[in-house]
Amino acid sequence: MREFTDSDAKRRLMTGAVGLMLLATGFIVSVITGTVDISLGDMARIFAGVQTDGMYHVLMNIRLPRIITGAFVGVNLALSGAILQAVLKNPLADPGIVGVTAGAGLFAMAVMILLPSLTHLVPPAAFIGALVTSLVIYFLAYEGGAHSLRLILAGVALAAFLGAFMSCFTVLYSDRVQGTVNWMAGSLSGKSWIHVKMILPYTILGLFGAGIGARYLNILMLGDDVARGLGVSVERVKFLLTMLAALLAASAVSVAGLLGFVGLIVPHITRLIIGSDNRFLIPFSAVFGGIIVIFADTAARVVFAPYELPVGVVMAFVGAPFFLYLLSRSSRS
């Protein structure tokens, strides 16, 4: 039995091919452009290991880790969003909904403002803040089961609550706020191999977890009652998947700051292109998440050079109109 129609399969194949091409293009463009332009020839020689001058240092120790970190951040945020949109059956769900943004933001801000000498603690603090907040929201929303609307409302309420603390910080320590701006908008500036190592385990875990979870996400989208009727232990599966999403987003924001938007938009764009089957949506979202962050970060470095924009700003500038365009096109067809 053929499992899918030819047009479905062709579309996925095409999308996959275009995705991989974009990924490769984005990677190369990002490697060669910047304050110092590196030629394609230099790039090839450096990767082959025959050129080891200053260019080598720029490429291998500054640009490459930044690109890879960015790609993993994009992958993790997109996976997180795709998982949450399916678990909560809500297309507006993103990592912010389970408190990741607010929790990470508050903890990171607290470190940056109250302990300015200990900025190396920002990533672990953000990570812990994100996870603790998402757990608190989950248990606040739990009543015989985690209903998606309760979860969303609890998330919004807790985000507002934590936001109030952040506002207090900005008012009381207005002299120190400047240093937090970049982090709050999401930035990949100065990312090194340490950050790659920090995020990589979560990317691997996320890809595996979401890969296994895809089948359950498909069934959860049929509604809790149908899913339970099909033998899925709904509450356990939901909890595990929500926590996987929180972990993925926490690892991303702990490295890159509050990079919004990717988790909301990328799964959406992917769904508009290849449909809602999570077995395909999950891997494609991961690839597109990586692509989008790589391109956005390249633009962030280059457009106003020598000044650098936070990558989150570029993402919102370009991503939002593109998303609206896709939305209007899909509603017409």
Partner: peptide, 27 residues
């Protein structure tokens, strides 16, 4: 267990809902 019950008892709630783009054979 949930799956043991599901192997013997099928249940359909009132007007179940699913994404409209699921092909019949996938459902």
């Amino acid at each position: 267990t949930d799956s043991a019950i599901a192997r013997s008892v099928g249940i359909l709630p009132q007007s179940p809902n699913a994404p409209g783009d699921i092909p019949v054979h996938c459902l």
